[in-house]
Design a protein around this nucleic acid. Structure first.
Ligand SMILES: [Mn+2]
Ligand SMILES: [Mn+2]
Length: 566
DNA sequence: ACCGCCCACACAAGA
DNA sequence: AATTCGACCG
DNA sequence: TCTTGTGTGGGCCGGTCGAAT
């Protein structure tokens, strides 16, 4: 029987992890063979040809961190053969290097302080260091004099024979197939297990065997190369050294936006490392909004006002998102006097509702909870929901649209949402389906629909639904109190830019189910403690609420004790 | 749905 | 000596 | 004083066990 969908192994099988690996390898060999080199295909075939014991042990190593392992730390009683025998086979078949060169760092990761201390005791004593050095300090001291890699026998001539260290040879290949299968490197073998355990549930969306994350090998290579760049940055490597290895501009929009984000991070690091010219170049090459703004701010700080002004003006002449307009107008306001231009006319932002509360400072709990306690009554209960409520109402109403089996949207059984969720054309590809769901808001059928979906899909992952904060009573209250016209306005803005508009909602929502006016049965409240301030995207939602007549306000909290002093 | 986001909070600098 | 941290596991 | 920018820290199954401080 041909498997159209990889199904995780039962955990009753003691070799469940091997079955999962076999499933993944077979899936890749069947559906991604054209993205592999001849050599890689042969290697995978050789893997599948290994006997159970060695294959299982190799899988265990692939699933663990790093490439180096002490043989005496590989203890897997479920194997059908002794570990030593499986190891021999793997060495003979070229999967393991039995005598790898180890750096000092490798050595210190593999062996404990107690094991290392006697080996370096004499040397440290000669240098006049105390015997009780910690592991990190000891490694620092040894780093320079012992910077050359050595085989284990040369590091530990005394006690070394008790232990062997092996190096996994083909980790890059296993990372590559994991990437091709999942379409990312954040998911892994453990996703199979979490599903079996019931910790995670994913919607079952049909996908054709032909649907996959990558169409060309060059795309996979590009992803892997950018991933390496990011890792190097995280390890503190200077931005100048990483920049030459960043792939050039790419056509694939998904990879292009990943590249934009990488360049933003690279630019940040460059700036922090004092490489201003590099930062400018890198940020200019990123299409990311924050990168563009950062480039302008850096020019401003370097007093290159004319340059910044020119770019900013050019940018402002294009179609701007709310966020761009917001960031750009702040810049233009500062730049105008520097270049002798007129102050740009201020955009007429609607005023926001505000009020101040003075509360006793609670010993425990957050400022949001303190405000909630104070504001909530039996007739007007208050909930601390932030983004979760509106997002959930949207996710539940539009469930079938979100999980519509479009080409390229789903390609393995472990998707939280469609792969193209934050891509430019996500909504356009589903416009009719969304409109159809929104029509339910006009007929009143949406309440039933949302509550039914809440019951039927309980616990199943959805990028808009955070299950632990929801319950039926909250949903019913929300559906009673929030007019459907408001919901439609909120949902349409959300769809307008999912990435930017799924967050920034106020902390609290207050329901007044018995209010006369249907428009006044609820109110959203953003709480700000002393020293906190509204974030940009919070302001943008609040301004939207104000323009739409959606009740919302900002609650500034002061602590009673501070006030006496202040 | 990309080791990233989504929040509050802390500190600095310039107007 | 007691606590914190992280790798590993199902 | 206000505004604005920037950097930080926590939390991501839950439990066990070894290692480090
Ligand atoms: Mn909040
Ligand atoms: Mn708040």
């Amino acid at each position: 029987m041909i498997k159209h969908r990889p199904v995780p192994a039962s955990l009753d099988d003691p070799l469940y992890y091997l079955e999962n690996m076999d499933i993944l390898v077979a899936w890749v060999a069947n559906h991604h063979a054209d993205l592999l080199t001849e050599q890689e295909r042969n290697r995978l075939a050789a893997f599948s040809g290994l006997a159970t014991g060695p294959r299982a042990l190799l899988t265990r190593m692939v699933m663990r961190t790093g490439e180096l392992f002490r043989a005496d730390k590989l203890r897997y009683p479920e194997l059908p053969v002794p570990e030593s025998e499986a190891l021999r086979t793997l060495v003979q078949a070229g999967w393991l290097d039995p005598a790898p060169e180890l750096s000092l760092d490798d050595l210190f990761r593999l062996f404990t302080l107690a094991e290392l201390r006697p080996e370096f005791a004499d040397w440290l004593q000669q240098q006049g260091h105390p015997k009780t050095l910690g592991k990190a300090r000891m490694r620092e001291l040894l780093a320079e004099p012992f910077n050359a890699p050595r085989a284990l026998g040369a590091w530990l001539p005394g006690g070394g024979e008790a232990s062997t260290v092996v190096r996994l040879q083909d980790m890059a290949l296993f990372d590559r197939i994991r990437l091709m299968f999942f379409g990312n490197l954040r998911q892994s073998w453990t996703d199979f297990v979490l599903v079996e355990l019931g910790v995670q549930q994913f919607e079952s969306v049909p996908f054709t065997p032909a649907s996959r994350a990558f169409q060309q090998r060059a795309e996979v290579d590009c992803y892997l190369q950018m991933h390496q760049c990011r890792e190097r940055l995280e390890n503190g490597e200077p931005a100048v050294d990483v920049w030459p290895d960043v792939p050039g501009p790419v056509d694939n929009p998904w990879l292009a936006s990943r590249r934009d984000r990488l360049l933003l991070e690279l630019g940040r690091q460059a700036e922090r490392q004092g490489e201003r010219e590099l930062a400018l170049e890198v940020l200019e090459n990123s299409g990311h909004r924050e990168a563009q703004l950062k480039q302008l701010r850096l020019l401003e700080r370097m007093k290159r006002f004319e340059e910044a002004w020119a770019i900013a003006c050019q940018w402002q002449a294009t179609e701007l998102s709310d966020a761009e307009a917001q960031g750009l107008s702040r810049l233009l306001k500062r730049l105008a006097p520097k270049v002798g231009a007129d102050q740009p006319e201020p955009v007429d932002n609607p005023p926001l509702q505000e009020f101040t509360l003075t509360l006793p400072k609670p010993d425990t709990g957050t400022v949001e909870l303190a405000a909630l306690q104070h504001l909530g009554t039996d007739d007007a209960p208050v909930f601390y929901v932030e983004n979760t409520l509106i997002n959930a109402l949207f996710g539940l109403l539009c469930w079938p649209v979100i999980f519509q089996p479009l080409p390229g949207a789903f390609f393995h059984p472990f998707h939280i949402g469609p792969a193209d969720l934050t891509r430019e054309d996500f909504v356009a590809r589903r416009q009719q389906a969304f409109e159809q769901r929104f029509r339910l808001l006009g007929t009143g059928a949406y309440r039933r629909e949302i509550l039914d979906t809440y019951k039927n899909k309980q616990g199943i992952a959805n990028p808009f639904v955070f299950w632990p904060v929801l319950d039926e009573a909250l949903l019913e209250l929300a559906l009673h109190c929030i007019p459907s016209g408001h919901l439609e306005a909120l949902f349409r803005r959300l769809l307008n830019n999912i990435k930017e508009h799924r967050s920034g909602f106020p902390d609290l929502i207050r329901f007044v189910p018995d209010a006369e006016q249907p428009e006044q049965r609820y109110e959203m409240i953003e709480v700000k403690g002393p020293g906190d301030r509204l974030q940009d995207h919070q302001v943008r939602w609040l301004q939207f609420f104000a323009r739409q007549g959606i009740p919302a306000s900002v609650c500034y909290v002061r602590w009673q004790d501070d006030e006496a002093r202040g």
